[in-house]
């Protein structure tokens, strides 16, 4: 049982850096403080950079789930307005 409820999901597997982070950032701006965003991303460069960039924006990283198919789901709690 997850101890969080996902508010919204965004798929960034269809774009490349830096639009990966931009797309996640845009999705976060649509949410309210405390909401949970699930970010679906590819292995490699997105997994290396997107979590770090989101953290630098002040949001809270809850989990990075390996889907076992070359993709990951990053679970983020929005912090701030």
């Amino acid at each position: 049982m997850a101890d969080y409820q996902i508010t919204d999901r965004v798929d960034i597997t269809d774009v490349v850096c830096p639009v990966t982070f931009v797309k996640a950032k845009v999705a976060l701006e649509e949410l309210d403080e405390g909401d949970i965003l699930s970010v679906h991303m590819n292995d490699g460069e997105p997994v290396q950079n997107v979590p770090r960039s989101i953290k630098e924006e002040g949001h809270q990283i809850l989990k990075l789930e390996d889907n076992g198919d070359g993709t990951y789901d990053l679970i983020v709690r929005k912090v701030g307005e």
Partner: peptide
């Protein structure tokens, strides 16, 4: 749009 996100990505960041 995805195209706009790409076009303005350096601003949005």
């Amino acid at each position: 749009t995805n195209e706009q996100l790409e076009r303005y990505s350096r601003h949005i960041i």
